[in-house]
Protein backbone atom coordinates (compact mmCIF):
# COMPACT_ATOMS: atom_id res chain seq x y z
CA UNK A 1 0.00 0.00 0.00
CA UNK A 2 1.31 3.43 -0.84
CA UNK A 3 1.24 5.79 2.05
CA UNK A 4 0.33 9.41 2.50
CA UNK A 5 3.74 9.88 4.06
CA UNK A 6 6.59 12.00 2.92
CA UNK A 7 10.07 10.63 2.46
CA UNK A 8 13.16 12.75 2.90
CA UNK A 9 13.86 14.77 -0.21
CA UNK A 10 10.81 13.37 -1.99
CA UNK A 11 10.26 10.09 -3.77
CA UNK A 12 13.01 8.90 -6.14
CA UNK A 13 12.36 9.18 -9.87
CA UNK A 14 13.65 5.63 -10.33
CA UNK A 15 10.91 3.45 -11.84
CA UNK A 16 8.65 6.49 -12.31
CA UNK A 17 7.49 7.30 -15.83
CA UNK A 18 8.14 11.04 -15.79
CA UNK A 19 6.28 11.53 -19.07
CA UNK A 20 3.09 11.01 -17.03
CA UNK A 21 4.12 13.29 -14.17
CA UNK A 22 4.37 17.03 -13.62
CA UNK A 23 7.43 17.12 -11.38
CA UNK A 24 8.50 20.09 -9.27
CA UNK A 25 11.86 19.66 -7.59
CA UNK A 26 14.82 21.67 -6.42
CA UNK A 27 17.31 22.61 -3.76
CA UNK A 28 16.83 24.97 -0.81
CA UNK A 29 19.92 26.74 0.48
CA UNK A 30 20.87 29.22 3.17
CA UNK A 31 23.95 31.42 3.25
CA UNK A 32 26.11 28.42 4.21
CA UNK A 33 24.95 26.23 1.31
CA UNK A 34 22.23 23.60 0.89
CA UNK A 35 19.96 23.42 3.96
CA UNK A 36 20.19 19.97 5.55
CA UNK A 37 17.38 20.71 8.02
CA UNK A 38 14.07 22.01 6.83
CA UNK A 39 10.95 21.35 4.81
CA UNK A 40 9.53 22.15 1.41
CA UNK A 41 5.79 22.70 1.22
CA UNK A 42 3.69 22.80 -1.94
CA UNK A 43 0.65 25.07 -1.97
CA UNK A 44 -1.93 25.21 -4.76
CA UNK A 45 -2.93 28.33 -6.69
CA UNK A 46 -5.32 29.28 -3.88
CA UNK A 47 -2.60 29.05 -1.25
CA UNK A 48 -3.95 25.76 0.10
CA UNK A 49 -1.47 23.20 1.47
CA UNK A 50 -1.00 20.22 -0.86
CA UNK A 51 2.10 18.42 0.34
CA UNK A 52 5.26 18.80 2.36
CA UNK A 53 8.55 16.88 2.45
CA UNK A 54 11.59 17.05 4.71
CA UNK A 55 14.68 18.22 2.82
CA UNK A 56 17.41 15.72 2.07
CA UNK A 57 20.90 16.27 3.48
CA UNK A 58 21.64 18.17 0.27
CA UNK A 59 18.60 20.41 0.65
CA UNK A 60 16.62 18.60 -2.05
CA UNK A 61 12.86 18.18 -2.45
CA UNK A 62 10.52 16.72 -5.09
CA UNK A 63 6.77 16.88 -5.73
CA UNK A 64 4.48 15.19 -8.23
CA UNK A 65 1.95 17.87 -9.08
CA UNK A 66 -0.59 18.37 -11.83
CA UNK A 67 -0.25 20.89 -14.68
CA UNK A 68 -0.78 24.40 -13.36
CA UNK A 69 0.57 27.07 -11.07
CA UNK A 70 1.89 26.18 -7.64
CA UNK A 71 3.86 27.77 -4.82
CA UNK A 72 6.82 26.13 -3.09
CA UNK A 73 7.22 27.29 0.51
CA UNK A 74 10.69 26.81 1.99
CA UNK A 75 10.72 26.31 5.78
CA UNK A 76 14.19 26.23 7.34
CA UNK A 77 15.36 27.23 10.82
CA UNK A 78 15.17 31.00 10.94
CA UNK A 79 13.59 31.53 7.54
CA UNK A 80 10.62 31.05 5.22
CA UNK A 81 10.19 31.93 1.55
CA UNK A 82 7.61 31.43 -1.21
CA UNK A 83 8.40 30.70 -4.86
CA UNK A 84 5.77 30.42 -7.61
CA UNK A 85 6.29 27.72 -10.23
CA UNK A 86 4.43 26.34 -13.24
CA UNK A 87 4.26 22.57 -13.70
CA UNK A 88 3.65 20.79 -17.00
CA UNK A 89 3.00 17.15 -17.75
CA UNK A 90 6.16 15.34 -18.80
CA UNK A 91 8.34 18.21 -17.61
CA UNK A 92 10.56 18.60 -14.56
CA UNK A 93 10.49 22.10 -13.06
CA UNK A 94 13.83 22.65 -11.27
CA UNK A 95 14.07 25.34 -8.60
CA UNK A 96 17.07 26.78 -6.82
CA UNK A 97 15.80 28.60 -3.73
CA UNK A 98 18.16 30.56 -1.51
CA UNK A 99 17.11 32.22 1.75
Amino acid sequence: MSSCGAVVGGVSLDHVDVTKQAVIQGVISNSAGPASTGYARLNDKNGEFVAEVPLSERGEFRFFAAPGTWTVVALIPGGTSRTDVTAELGQIADLDITL
Binding site: K20, Q21, L42, A51, V53, F63, F64, A66
Partner: peptide, 13 residues
Protein backbone atom coordinates in the same frame (compact mmCIF):
# COMPACT_ATOMS: atom_id res chain seq x y z
CA UNK B 1 -10.31 14.32 -8.65
CA UNK B 2 -7.54 16.38 -10.26
CA UNK B 3 -4.90 14.50 -8.25
CA UNK B 4 -5.01 10.86 -7.15
CA UNK B 5 -2.47 11.13 -4.37
CA UNK B 6 -0.72 13.75 -2.28
CA UNK B 7 1.66 15.71 -4.48
CA UNK B 8 4.82 14.32 -2.91
CA UNK B 9 3.93 10.91 -4.38
CA UNK B 10 3.71 9.73 -7.99
CA UNK B 11 0.23 10.09 -9.44
CA UNK B 12 -0.18 6.40 -10.25
CA UNK B 13 -2.83 4.46 -8.38
Amino acid sequence: GRLLAPAHLPQET
